[in-house]
């Protein structure tokens, strides 16, 4: 039972990797990573918890599974938000985009991405 769970988990991780390689857009790759590899790693950890005997190992694996399940969706949310907001990354949205209007309200033009150094910054300083 344990190795079977780990096999399904490894298969889902491979599915996630294929999605990450094939999808055309950064946000779509985020979808593939979050949905498949979260479940994959939780299944693999549960398979290990079923197989191993020592109670110390079992509790460590259960704790790792719970933490993976809690942290991976949050990390995906943070990354999706930053990817969408970063001006230099192409977020290709086909149909409607209701977040863009929201951001147009409070978007201030911050200037070019690479600022030239302010004049006089390298003037000799005592130190």
């Amino acid at each position: 039972m344990g190795p079977l769970l780990a096999l399904v988990g490894a298969g889902l991780t491979l599915l996630s990797a294929v999605g990450v390689v094939r999808f055309p857009d950064a946000l779509a790759r985020m979808h593939a990573l979050t949905k498949a590899s979260t479940v994959g790693v939780v299944l693999a950890l549960l398979g290990g918890a079923v197989t191993l005997d020592h109670p110390n190992d079992v509790t460590t694996l259960l704790l790792a599974a719970a933490l993976q399940l809690l942290t991976l969706p949050v990390a995906a949310n943070l990354m999706s938000r930053s990817t969408y907001m970063a001006r230099g990354i192409a977020s290709h949205v086909d149909e409607i985009d209701e977040l863009a209007e929201r951001h147009a309200l409070d978007d201030v033009d911050p200037g070019p991405l690479d600022e030239p150094p302010p004049p006089g910054a390298e003037a000799g300083r005592p130190g």
Partner: peptide
């Protein structure tokens, strides 16, 4: 979700119509 992902990944050209909804 994983079944849908498997279907999308194995398609020869992934067919996505993305949108952001409030």
């Amino acid at each position: 979700a994983n079944a849908q992902l498997a279907r999308e990944v194995l398609r020869p050209r992934p067919r996505l119509r993305t949108a952001i909804v409030r």
